[in-house]
Design a protein around this nucleic acid. Structure first.
Lengths: 199, 199
DNA sequence: CGCTACCTACCTTCTGGTAGGATGGCAGTC
DNA sequence: GACTGCCATCCTACCAGAAGGTAGGTAGCG
C-alpha cells in the first residue's frame, strides 16, 4: 500500500491549499514551485496548463467527496447521523485549519471569471452534493426521522447554502467556532427533539 | 440633486461589478480602463493604488449597507418585514443580475490573500450586518413576532450565513430562483404561521 | 498662477507557457 | 551482462504579455 507521494500529488495538494486560501487567480505556478521545491517549468510537465491543473484538482476533489458520501451511505444508517457526520467533517477541517473551505464553494464565488472547464466541474459538485442531501432528507422524512417544512429538495438546498455560508462566516470572523454555532441548530431543527440522539 | 457621475464614481462602479464577477484578483486596472474609457494611468490619479481603490469601494459599500439598514429601521416597523425587505433586496439584485453578489461576502472568501486594509473593511461589514440582524431578531422575539430556537445572535449568524450561501448557490446553478427557494422558508420559519403577513 | 484631470511613455515584476537539453531508469535483445 | 533506444522527469533559459505603478507633460478652468 505504499503511497509514496509522487510529485504530481504534491503539486495537486499544494495547489489545493493555495486555492483554499485565495481562489483561482490567487496563486501562480511560481507559488507552487516554491513550496514543492521544483522549477516552474517542471509543473508544466505534469499539468500542461493551469486549467489542466485546476480541472484535475477539482475532479479529484469531487471523486473524494463522492466517495465520502458513498461511505456515509454504507457506514451510517441513520439519516440524521449522516448529516451530523457531514457537518462534523467540515467542523474538524475548519477547526484544525487543515482545509478550512470547500474548494468548490470557493471557486463557485468566482464562477463568472473561471475557465469554462473548471466551472463545469464546480457546478457538477453542487448538483451532486445537493442530490445526495436531497436523498438523505427524503429518506429521513420517510422514516419519520425528520420533520421537513418544505420539499426534501428545498431543504437540501437550504442545508447546503447554510453550510457554505457558515464556512464564509468562520473565515470572516477568523473564528472556527462560528461554523458549529450555525450548523448545529440546523441539524437540531431537522429532527424532532424527542428523536434526537446525542453522539 | 444632479449627481452627474464623476469619473471617480464611474471607476468605483466599474470596479464593483468586476469584483462581483471575480473578486480582488479577478480584475486589473486595464480592465477598468477599457470599460470606463480612460487610460490606465488616469485611474492612478483617482486611486493611487489598487488597495486604495478597493478599500474606498468597500468602505462606500459599507456606508450604503449601513444606510439601508438605518432606512429599514425608520421605514419599516415590523421585524419580519425588515428581514423580508432585506432578503427581497438581494432577490431583486440577483434576479436582474445588476449586482448578483454581496462584495463583502465575495471578498471574505479570499480573505487570506486580501490586503490587510481591505480585509479589515470586509470583516467590519460582517460584524455590522450581524449586529443589525441580531437586533432585529431580538426585538422581534421580544414583541412575540418571532419564535427563535436559539439566541438572537445565533439565529442572526445562521440567517446571514444562509443568505450568503444562497447567493453562492444561485451563482453555481446559474439560476436566480434558487435564492428565493432558500431564503423564503428561512423567513417563514422565524415567524409563527398565524402571524404571517403576505406582502 | 495653480489645480484637476487626463494623457503618452516607460519601468519592473510577475504571469502562464515554450524550447531544448541533461539525467536516469527500464525494456528489449544480442 | 552489455548495449541500445525510449520515455519520464526535471532542468536552464527564454518569451510575450499583463500586472501595478511612475515620470513628466498638456489642456482647461477658476
Amino acid at each position: 500500500m505504499g503511497n509514496v507521494s509522487t510529485t504530481s500529488d504534491d503539486i495537486l495538494a499544494c495547489a489545493r491549499s493555495l486555492i483554499v486560501a485565495g481562489g483561482y487567480n490567487g496563486f501562480s505556478y511560481a507559488d507552487i514551485a516554491d513550496v514543492v521545491g521544483i522549477r516552474k517549468a517542471s509543473i508544466h510537465h505534469h499539468f500542461p496548463s493551469k486549467v489542466d491543473l485546476v480541472r484535475t484538482l477539482v475532479a479529484r476533489y469531487r471523486e473524494e467527496a463522492e466517495a465520502g458520501m458513498a461511505n456515509l451511505e454504507l457506514q451510517v444508517s441513520d439519516p440524521l447521523e449522516q448529516l451530523q457526520d457531514y457537518a462534523g467533517y467540515w467542523e474538524v477541517c475548519i477547526a484544525d485549519a487543515s482545509a478550512p473551505f470547500c474548494i468548490c464553494a470557493l471557486l463557485a464565488s468566482e464562477l463568472p471569471v473561471l475557465p469554462e472547464e473548471v466551472g463545469l466541474e464546480v457546478r457538477a459538485h453542487f448538483r451532486s452534493l445537493s442530490a445526495w442531501l436531497t436523498s438523505v432528507l427524503e429518506r429521513g422524512a420517510r422514516l419519520g426521522r425528520f420533520q421537513l417544512m418544505g420539499t426534501p429538495r428545498a431543504e437540501a438546498e437550504a442545508f447546503m447554502a447554510t453550510v457554505h455560508g457558515a464556512m464564509l462566516s468562520a473565515r470572516a470572523y477568523g473564528d472556527p467556532k462560528i461554523f458549529a454555532v450555525v450548523t448545529r441548530p440546523l441539524l437540531e431543527r431537522l429532527a424532532p427533539r424527542s428523536l434526537q440522539i446525542q453522539s
